[in-house]
């Protein structure tokens, strides 16, 4: 993260200077900072709503039921998490929300999953294998209905906007499965490396 942050800003400054866009770059600091707070504040309400609903679902035992249903898969994906943890039920909910294109619900649930995975994490400053797997799966963005994309195509007057659904499903599945495989391979490589470094 340190290097990414450094390069994002340094490359912007150098490229801005070369392209004669330095004033734009400086102005973008203000607009970017403003936008971040707007994003965070726009999250508060919907976050509170879904966290409230999730708490009811948890108390009613719904999360446990879901967790049991997907146990065969999560046992393999999240080896270091106790299989009766709430986190696993929430993982399933988070992906259902993503798959259905419910981005508003997916972020609050995803953040709840992170909190629960953190409770099982031994080193609180370093990501666990389960977190890396979960994040890998999240960033691959498995989605069955690209609702926003279709809305934009419709808005632009597309003749047949739903024709992108099939190719999108194929591509999203490929990316999703690759993320899982890559995370699994890396977890082995990193473990070896970290043993050597210690």
């Amino acid at each position: 993260m340190n290097y990414i942050f450094y390069f994002l800003i340094v490359i912007s400054i150098i490229a801005g200077a070369v392209n004669g866009k330095l004033p734009d770059v400086v102005n973008s600091i203000l607009t970017g900072a403003e936008l971040s707070v707007k994003v965070a504040f726009s999250l508060i309400g919907i976050m509170a709503f879904w966290l409230g609903m999730m708490r009811i679902a948890e108390k009613a035992g719904l999360i446990n039921i879901i967790a049991k249903c997907i146990k065969p898969i999560t046992k393999w994906l999240f080896k270091d998490i106790p299989q009766d943890s709430h986190a696993l039920g929430n993982v399933a909910l988070s992906f259902s929300a993503n798959a259905l294109g419910l981005a508003n619900a997916a972020t609050p649930i995803g953040l709840k999953v992170m909190e629960e995975l953190q409770q099982e994490n031994k080193n609180k400053e370093s990501a666990s294998d389960a977190m890396c797997m979960f994040l890998g799966m999240c960033t691959a963005g498995f989605q069955l209905v690209p609702a926003t994309v279709i809305a934009i195509l419709v808005g632009a007057g597309a003749k047949n906007p739903t024709e992108i659904i099939a190719p999108t499903m194929i591509v999203t599945s490929i990316a999703f499965i690759s993320a899982i495989i890559v995370a699994k391979i890396f977890s082995k490589i990193w473990k070896k490396q970290e043993v050597i470094n210690d």
């Binding site: 990414i4 994002l8 800003i9 490359i11 912007s12 400054i13 801005g16 734009d24 936008l35």
Partner: peptide, 12 residues
């Protein structure tokens, strides 16, 4: 968000 905004503004 600030980092990405700067990158986009720089034209890179």
């Amino acid at each position: 968000i600030v980092g990405v905004s700067m990158l986009r503004a720089s034209g890179v």
